[in-house]
């Protein structure tokens, strides 16, 4: 069963934002803890969980069998090639930055080559138990893809958002028309009121500065004879 979640640099299994589980919560809980009474009760009632449980039981027989690892995969050059590809790909993502900043010692590239028998990968290889060689190759070569059902959920979500955005301008346009109509009606009412009750128009008065005092009595009082 492929994982629905992508792992972060710390392997915390954090979910991508926006992904929704195709499984209902009760089904998830039940399938995780198959042996418990509560789960058994749910599985008995849920046809989906019943089918999943039956399929898991069929696959479990094959998953428990560990085929022999091909000799080619045990070769040191093969393993080192895998190692190099993993390192290169990891260097370009945040995992590489994490490794550079961490206290994990970087293997010495100039150290004498260790024989395949003494290679630490030998133990690791023997520990990897995969159902088929194709599964291992697929894991190493192909990018990790989310489950199809998850993508269906994401697609539905995006389409719903897009549909909402398309509808919002239409609503906004409709609202704008309503506002304009209301404003026009108000203007018409105000204009009618204005016509029926005309407001007084104040005349414009302009001050013009004179360069000489006009011939007024007070000017004579102040200046005296004006010749």
């Amino acid at each position: 069963m492929s994982s629905n979640h992508s792992t972060g640099p710390l392997g915390d299994g954090g979910e991508h934002r926006g992904l929704r589980s195709a499984l209902a919560a009760r089904c998830r809980f039940a399938l995780r803890d198959v042996g418990s009474d509560e789960s058994s009760e749910h599985i008995a009632k849920c046809s989906f969980c019943t089918a999943r449980t039956k399929a898991a039981n069929r696959i479990a027989k094959f998953a428990s069998q560990r085929p022999e690892v091909p000799a080619a995969l045990s070769a040191a050059s093969m393993l080192e090639g895998i190692y190099d590809r993993v390192v290169e790909s990891a260097q370009q993502v945040s995992l590489g930055e994490w490794l550079q900043q961490s206290d994990v010692p970087v293997p010495d590239e100039h150290a004498p080559e260790v024989s395949a028998e003494a290679s630490p990968w030998a133990d690791a290889t023997s520990g990897v138990e995969c159902a088929t060689g194709d599964l291992i190759g697929e894991f190493l070569r192909g990018p990790e893809l989310p489950d199809v059902r998850v993508w269906f959920g994401v697609r539905r979500s995006i389409l719903a958002d897009v549909a909402h955005e398309i509808a919002a301008p239409a609503k906004l346009r409709l609202m704008n028309w309503r506002v304009l109509l209301a404003g026009a009606a108000a203007s018409a009412v105000i204009a009618l009121l204005a016509v029926s009750d005309p407001a007084p128009v104040h005349p414009t008065i302009v001050f013009t500065d004179l360069d000489r005092a006009p011939d007024v009595e007070f000017a004579t009082v102040r200046y005296g004879s004006r010749h």
Partner: peptide
């Protein structure tokens, strides 16, 4: 417009 002629100095303010 309607005009008011104005003269002002420190001694007199006169508007016509």
């Amino acid at each position: 417009a309607h005009t008011i002629g104005r003269f002002r100095d420190p001694a007199i303010s006169a508007l016509v």
